[in-house]
Every structure is written in structure tokens, then in C-alpha cells.
């Protein structure tokens, strides 16, 4: 199954690269712009703090998540729209390899580019703000960030594939998923700022007293479970007949 998944991932990534421009050159250009933004421009603006303050890379972690969304919404809805889905479903590929290949392509693209951007960011800081020794992100927060961003990308990939399975067009899927993103990502932030000041102060006090690493691990466990549940649901909803007749 892994070979078949890789075949789908390879094809989908090729399509993504050619979709973003008039040809392969245009696609690579947008990738380079993204990596340049996350790996050069942002670290240049923040300096050494880019490596020492773990909050900064986390703050920009929403960009790869958006990349996942843009690819995964195209997965099934785009194939359906461009009349390539039925031929793909008539091939020898199993349901699992098609489904996991589609999720894998989106995660690999968004999360992978995010990781490349972060590594390039470390190089940029070392080259431009040399401190007399080689600097890197703090190991534990960095590994936690790598793992967490992978899980969040997988979460968005799974939600996206569920939406894409039933959407008539890639645009419709993207619009639906943007609303989900808005609810999941931005509403909690807006909600917290809208709370009365005394409640916010109380929340702050509670947060000061809790064991943050434990909360982080708990949160990651919840995301991991959500990933598994969503992948299971997507697997159940993947029906060749339904995909063809939709």
C-alpha cells in the first residue's frame, strides 16, 4: 500500500506544482516565495529571537496549515471537477491507498514546506546574526513543534478530505473548509479577547499555575485521537459508487 500511496502523493504534488503557475517554473516559484518568507524574511525581521523564543515559529505555523487546506480540498473535488476521478477509481489502486495518498500529499506539501522553512530560518539567523557559535531551536520545544504541526496538518488534511469527498468542485470544498478554519482557528481567539477583563485575568492565573508541558501533551493526545477518528470516518465514507455518481 505504501508504494501506491507514494504514487498518488508524487502525482498530486506534481499537479500542485504545475497548478500554481503556467508550468513547472511557476509552481516552483510560489514554493520558493513561501520558503523565502518563512525561512529568510521572518527570521531577518526578528533576529536571534527567531531561534530562542519558541512562540515565534508557532505564531507563523498557520501558514503551512493553509497550504494543507489548499491542496486537500482539491484532492477529490478537483479530480471530480476535471473528470479524472472515475479513471483513477477504475484503476487497480485500493480505497486506502487513494485516500491515504491524497491526505499524505496535502500533509507532505504543507507540513514539509513548513519544516523546510524552519530549517532555512535557522540557517538565516546563523549566517546573518552570527553569535560566535552555531545556534538552533531549543530541542524539546522544537521537537514538540514538529510533532504538533504534523498532527495539526493531519487534522486539517483529514477534515479537508472529508469535505472534498462530497463537494462538487474544488472551490466549493475550499469555501466550506475556510469556514471550518475560521471556526477552529480564529473564533477562539476573538472569543477570548471578547471576554470581560476579570474573567481573562482569572484564566491567566489558572494558566500560570498549570503544568504547561502536561497540558501540551494532553492537547496533542486529543488532536491525535481526533486525527484517527476523522481518518476512520473518511475511510467509511469513501465509496467508489458514491464518488462516481455524485
Amino acid at each position: 500500500m505504501l508504494t501506491d500511496m507514494m504514487t498518488i502523493i508524487r502525482k498530486d504534488l506534481k499537479e500542485v506544482l504545475t497548478a500554481r503557475g503556467t508550468g513547472k517554473r511557476g509552481g516552483w516559484m510560489s514554493v520558493l516565495i513561501f520558503i523565502g518568507l518563512l525561512g529568510i524574511l521572518m527570521p531577518l525581521q526578528t533576529g536571534v529571537e527567531w531561534l530562542t523564543n519558541p512562540i515565534l515559529p508557532i505564531l507563523w505555523s498557520w501558514i503551512p496549515v493553509f497550504l494543507v487546506v489548499s491542496v486537500v480540498t482539491d484532492s477529490f473535488a478537483g479530480e471530480r471537477e476535471r473528470n479524472t476521478l472515475e479513471t483513477l477509481l477504475a484503476s487497480r489502486l485500493t480505497d486506502q491507498s487513494i485516500l491515504f495518498g491524497k491526505i499524505g500529499a496535502a500533509v507532505l506539501y504543507g507540513w514539509g514546506l513548513g519544516m523546510v522553512g524552519n530549517l532555512l530560518g535557522a540557517v538565516t539567523v546563523n549566517v546573518v546574526f552570527w553569535q560566535g557559535r552555531l545556534m538552533f531551536y531549543q530541542p524539546v520545544p522544537y521537537l514538540a513543534f514538529v510533532f504538533a504541526s504534523f498532527l495539526v496538518s493531519l487534522l486539517m488534511g483529514s477534515i479537508g478530505v472529508l469535505v472534498s469527498l462530497n463537494a462538487p468542485t474544488a472551490r466549493a470544498a475550499y469555501q466550506k473548509l475556510s469556514i471550518v478554519m475560521l471556526v477552529v482557528w480564529f473564533l477562539p481567539t476573538i472569543g477570548i479577547t471578547a471576554l470581560p477583563i476579570n474573567i481573562r485575568e482569572n484564566i491567566g492565573k489558572v494558566l500560570e499555575n498549570i503544568n504547561l508541558p502536561m497540558v501540551g501533551v494532553g492537547l496533542l493526545a486529543v488532536i491525535l485521537i481526533a486525527d484517527l477518528v476523522l481518518i476512520f470516518v473518511a475511510r467509511q465514507r469513501f465509496k467508489r459508487a458514491k464518488l462516481i455518481l455524485n
Binding site: K14, E15, T18, A19, N83, E86, L88, A90, R92
Partner: peptide, 18 residues
């Protein structure tokens, strides 16, 4: 069956960006 068959269906099914 799909393992042993080839198909050209209603649409060409080509990836036009490739």
C-alpha cells in the same frame, strides 16, 4: 478485475496539468 483491465471511460481522464 480492475487489476487486469484497462479502461478508457466517458471522459479521457487525463491530468491536463501534467
Amino acid at each position: 478485475i480492475r487489476e487486469n483491465c484497462g479502461a478508457l471511460l466517458e471522459h479521457t481522464g487525463l491530468y491536463e496539468r501534467l
